[in-house]
Structures are given as C-alpha cells and as structure tokens.
C-alpha cells in the first residue's frame, strides 16, 4: 500500500501535493480539537479526582478509579433522569416524525385548498416567537405546566416540514396517480409508499430531534415543578454549574463544603460519559441514511 501511495505521489503535481498536505494538516488539527476533549473526559472519568485536579492527568487515565461511576450508578436521581430522558426522546421523535411527515405530505399536494394561507401561518411562526412569559402563559392556560406534554409538544418545527415537503415533492407524481387508480387513499399512500421511500429524511429528523431533546434542559426547568419528571441533563447541569456557585463560606461548615465538592468533582466526568454514551451509540444505526438525508434540502441538478 505504501508503494502505491508513493507511486501516486510521484505522479502528482507539486501544487497538488502541497494542497493535500495543507488539507490533511487542517483536518488533523480539527480532529485533535474535536477528539481531545472527548478523550480527556473519558480518561478523567476513569482517573482519581486528585490526579485530575492537580493536572497530572492530561490525556490517558492516571490512578485508575471507578469511584465516579460508582457514585453515579448508586444515585437514584440519575436513573430517574435517564429514564425520563429516554422517554422524552422516543416520544419526541415519534411525534416529530408523525406531524412532520403528515404536514409535509399535505403541503406537497398542489390540490390542498388554502395551501398558500396555511403556508403563511406556518412561516410566520418561524420568524416570530412570543417570548418566555407569553409562552408560559399559553402553556399555563392549556394546562401543560408540570406535565410531560410541555416538553413533547413544542418540538414541532416548520423548517423540518419544509424539508419533508421538498423531499416528498421530488417523488414522481405518476406514483400517486397509479396508486389512486388502484383505489389508494391519501393516508394509505402516505404510510405505504411515501414513508418507506423517505427513510433518509426520517433518519435525519430522528437524529436531530433525538440529540436536541436529549441535550435540552431549559424547558424542563421552566415548565416542570415535579422533579420526578426532570430529564438527566438537569441533574448534570446542577452538578457541573451549581457546584461552582455554592456559597461555601456562608452556607456550610468547611468539612461539609469539602465533602460536597469532592463528591461532585469525582462524579462529574463519569456523569458526562453516562449521559453522552446513549446518543453516541445511536448514531451508527442511522449513519447509512444520514449522509443521504442531509443533502435532501439542497438543490438538485
């Protein structure tokens, strides 16, 4: 393989070689910039808090310790948050796919009466929002506050509907005409023909929605009062952010303050790994469709 490589290089013009060298250098830099934080976090999760705090651990684990994982897995809130997050992801993806495909299909049909007006109503929502307080008031009046629906319903995005519409419009109209001749209704056409042919965009929507919902926390902090419904990210956030804002001198005796800081410092990296791993595991299953699906919204030749 080395010989083939050098033979190819010999046949290249010098400017091409230089260009490739710069490209590879840039990509290497980007790889290090992206991969190093991930490697650091994973290594830190398997290292002692002393090694991490002192700076001795900078790439590979030092003073291997599973104390962080032990603290994470023995904490019931982590399980509760994990289950909640999984629930929100699955339900949000299902709702997102259902509504996006149905709306996208409806918009793709030229015979939809009032299509222009509906389009206008939806487009307005892309540019204007009510803000936090009016939105909260709407949720309150609809009885969504402190319910799981407050986190599930708001995920519907018109930009995804536009992408779905574009993709469905690209399907041959003859397909629909033939189906209609055979007595196929709109609903049946959507679910039996359009959806199976739209796997790439379904994969894209699923992944984007799953990642977005998995990482979100703000809606839960604002609309949920019952902490048994909180997703995992809230718990992660309190560990990472509030740990540094504890008024140690006023609040606690020194020993309590140190004990709390030690616990949080130890479980911090393990909790990041535990909360990130599921999403990383999902990606390989959708990658095949993801590359195709990402280009759906682009211009076609």
């Amino acid at each position: 393989m080395g010989k083939v490589f050098w033979r190819k290089m010999r046949n290249q013009h010098f400017s091409d070689i230089a260009f490739m060298a710069v490209v590879y250098l840039g990509l290497t830099f980007a790889l290090v910039a992206c991969a190093y934080p991930v490697i650091y976090v994973v290594s830190a999760s398997f290292s002692s808090s002393r090694a991490v705090a002192s700076g001795e651990m900078w790439l590979f684990p030092k003073e291997i310790s599973l104390e962080g994982y032990r603290l994470v897995f023995q904490n019931k809130t982590v399980y509760m948050g994990f289950v909640n997050s999984v629930f929100y992801v699955i339900m949000s993806v299902l709702i997102q796919l259902m509504t996006t495909m149905m709306a996208g299909f409806a918009f793709s049909r030229r015979e939809l009466p009032g299509r222009t007006w509906f389009n206008l109503f939806f487009v307005i929502t892309m540019f204007f929002g009510g803000g936090l307080i009016p939105t909260y008031l709407v949720y309150l009046k609809l009885g969504l506050v402190n319910t799981r629906w407050a986190l599930l319903l708001p995920g519907i995005s018109f930009s995804n509907i536009i992408i779905a519409r574009t993709s469905i419009s690209a399907l041959p109209e003859d397909l629909f005409d033939c189906s209609k001749l055979d007595g196929c209704s709109y609903i049946r056409y959507l679910f039996r023909i359009v959806v199976p042919l739209s796997k790439p965009i379904l994969a894209v929507f699923s992944l984007y929605t799953a990642v977005g919902v998995w990482n979100s926390y703000f809606g839960a902090m604002i609309y949920l009062r019952d902490q048994t419904k909180y997703p995992l990210q809230i718990f992660l956030r309190t560990i990472l952010i509030l740990n540094s804002t504890i008024d140690l001198e006023a609040d606690l005796s020194s020993e309590d303050a140190v004990r709390m800081m030690q616990v949080f410092a130890t479980m911090k990296y393990a909790l990041i790994v535990v909360s990130t791993a599921p999403i990383i595991c999902v990606y390989p299953f959708v990658q095949k469709h993801f590359v195709k699906g990402v280009m759906v919204g682009s211009l076609k030749g």
């Binding site: 809130t77 718990f235 309190t238 504890i246 949080f264």
Partner: peptide, 8 residues
C-alpha cells in the same frame, strides 16, 4: 444541596 436526590 444540588445534585442529591432529596428534591425528588
């Protein structure tokens, strides 16, 4: 304190 499961 933050992080403990007391709130739930």
């Amino acid at each position: 304190p933050p992080g403990y499961d007391l709130p739930t």
